[in-house]
Amino acid sequence: MAKTQAKLVNIIAEMNHLEEVLDRFIGLSDFYPEPAAKLADSVHGLTTLVQENPYKKMMEQLKSLLGILDMDVQETEDSSAPALLDHPEELIEKIQADYTDIQSKIEEIAQLKKEDEEIENLVKPILDLEISLDEIFACEYMVSRLGKLPLDSAEKLEEYKSKPFFWTALSQDFHHCWGIYMTTNSYEREVDNLFSSLQFERIHIPHFIHGTPEEALEGLTEEMKSFQRSLDKLNLQKEELRQETKEKLSELYLALAHASLVFEARKFVLVLGNRFSISGFILPENMDSVTNAFQDLPFVEIEVRPASSDKRLTPPTKMKTKKHFTKAKTLADLFKSGATH
């Protein structure tokens, strides 16, 4: 559409009504506002309100927390934003700290359980060993090595039966044979070298494992059950935290998103002493959307002039229906949009 069909609109009010006017302004559609910076330098004493958005950091922290909690923002039928509570960053930090504490404990216990599972896999193949592990490794003049050999290597041990070691097979599968070899201290290096050449993989039993392998396995099983009970309890606590804070975080997100949008709209505000104005273009047939938005605010003055009346501004050559700010009706919409533009 030709630019001469547009109208230039100035929305004017006193500075003490700024927030109330901007709250209505961000809901306008079909209105093309002009950045105040285009006008501020043309007249001495005119200023703008361009500043860093104080809500941006909190929005990023809250979005991160929602992501960590794997929490979708709740839908709401009310399009109005809840009031922003005092010190919202304290609530975000408190919930973040509570979650981090629970998650840290979960990761710590899960790691201990995983270590037990790995030790369990080491102990199972040597269950046939009926001697206490403590007694084996406490021998003063003998050294012992628990581990596994490839099956073809185990078969080759017959070729070395004259060597100074004893080998006892404990179990095997399709690929390996688990067992233990023993030798005296004086032949330790020679025998270790021999078994190394046969691709012997040593099993290092942790120092806290005591008794026979069967007894050790029983202890590990009980400990893993205890770890799992702790994990179940902590996961329940995490879910309870999610449920307890879901509504509160959703409301906070909506409040922050709204406050952020209102603050971003300040870039269109031109300060005229103790008054301000917002200028923009609109098609005549869409003018009702502006007047209706402010009709119950008697302190708002709306000036309508020809598009070419202010030579500092150039009307758009094409004007299509467009929202310059998203005053979404749902939290999900705000969450997807990032809440700021």
Rank of each mutant, 00 (worst) to 15 (best):
D116E: 00
K225V: 03
A293H: 03
D116S: 04
K318E: 09
A255Y: 08
V271P: 08
K161V: 10
M1A: 11
K63Y: 09
E222L: 10
L252E: 02
E108A: 15
E155N: 08
E155A: 10
K336E: 13
A36W: 05
P54M: 08
K38V: 10
S132P: 02
L234F: 03
S277W: 00
S64T: 11
E117L: 12
E19H: 05
L149F: 05
L112A: 13
S226Y: 09
E118H: 04
L272N: 09
H175V: 11
L112R: 14
I26M: 06
S42R: 15
V269C: 05
T321C: 01
E115K: 13
L297H: 04
I68P: 01
T212G: 06
L85Y: 01
Y160G: 08
K322V: 06
L270P: 10
P306C: 07
E218T: 11
F195E: 09
D128A: 11
D72I: 01
A257Q: 00
R242M: 08
L28S: 09
L170N: 08
A154R: 12
V290Y: 02
F268E: 03
C139L: 11
V262H: 04
I126V: 11
E223H: 05
L254E: 07
P213A: 06
K148T: 03
I131Y: 05
M287P: 00
E285M: 05
K318F: 04
L157K: 00
L331W: 10
L18Y: 02
L331S: 15
S289N: 11
T184H: 04
E77M: 10
K156D: 01
L129F: 13
I106C: 09
S279G: 12
E93I: 03
D101H: 12
E19L: 05
D296C: 09
L231Y: 03
Q74F: 10
D173C: 05
E240T: 11
K105E: 15
T4Y: 15
L151A: 02
E14W: 04
E239Y: 06
L194R: 08
P206I: 11
R145C: 03
F200T: 10
E115G: 04
V269E: 08
L231E: 03
S308E: 15
P284R: 01
A332E: 14
I11A: 01
Q103S: 12
Y253Q: 02
D41R: 13
L91R: 06
Y160H: 13
E118R: 11
C139K: 14
A2T: 14
E159Y: 07
R275N: 01
K323I: 00
